[in-house]
Amino acid sequence: LKPSSELTSDTTEEDLQKIEAIDWLVFDPSQRAEAVRQANALMRVFVASRKLDATRKVFAKIPADSIDVIFRQWRRMTGRTELSPEDDNATREYICFQAYLQAHDAFNDWFEHYHHGRPKEPKQPEKSDIKFTEWVAYEHQQKQYEADLERWEQALMAQTKDTVNRIYNVLLFVDGGWMVDQKTAEPEKDEPEETGRLNQMSLLRKLCIPQMSFLLHTILHETKQYKEALQLADIIASEKNQIYKDFNKEQLRTLFQKLRESSLVLLDQNHDPLGYPWE
């Protein structure tokens, strides 16, 4: 088991130079839409090469109010409230990256808390030559430990829920899915560039959607929600979101091996393989 950050590569000097270049575009609000487009293009490449830190750095270069700024600039220039298809797609893509980074961050926090945050049980002193003071100290530590454990478990439950929601936020991204444009770009738009962008986005789905699904299975399985882990099949197979289309055969088989592990635990607990009572 590894935290998702271990799946990543380091940021190089060259990457940093590209990231710094975004600063020049952010300076002038009228160029904010272009800044977001350039940032998106960089993030597409970084996510594809699993450079999560570099992706975070790009994202941080774009001020948090940028979508507002883009809307205001557009309204001032054109008097219209609806963005051009190109800007609309770019802002949506930017929010997709935000959802993706938030899901990863939540998973890493959860992983840290789950594997390293657990309080340690105090060691019980040997019964034979125990001093009264040692025993009192032990009892005190034990009580402290029980309180800490309860706090830890409650925090874990809250964090699990939050992380699961953030991963769903990517898997079931509103209105047509993560990294799927809602508008068709205008015809005068440079075509090879646009096709390249659409190809990259489709590849990102094929890379990130199975990965996010596996992270979700890890959380559900590790927090003993085995029945829910099996129900991941419903979400992935659903025609509404068509998540299964982003899995290749090998990834589907990996998924089955993971679901099988959850089933085996359910069998051990005297349930049927899907977590229902035996009939």
Binding site: L230, A233, A237, S238, Y244, R253, L259
Partner: peptide, 14 residues
């Protein structure tokens, strides 16, 4: 029933 159908669909694709 739904999960069995979903799993069957994914198994077909795998």
């Amino acid at each position: 029933k739904k999960t069995l159908l979903s799993l069957s669909k994914l198994a077909a694709l795998a």
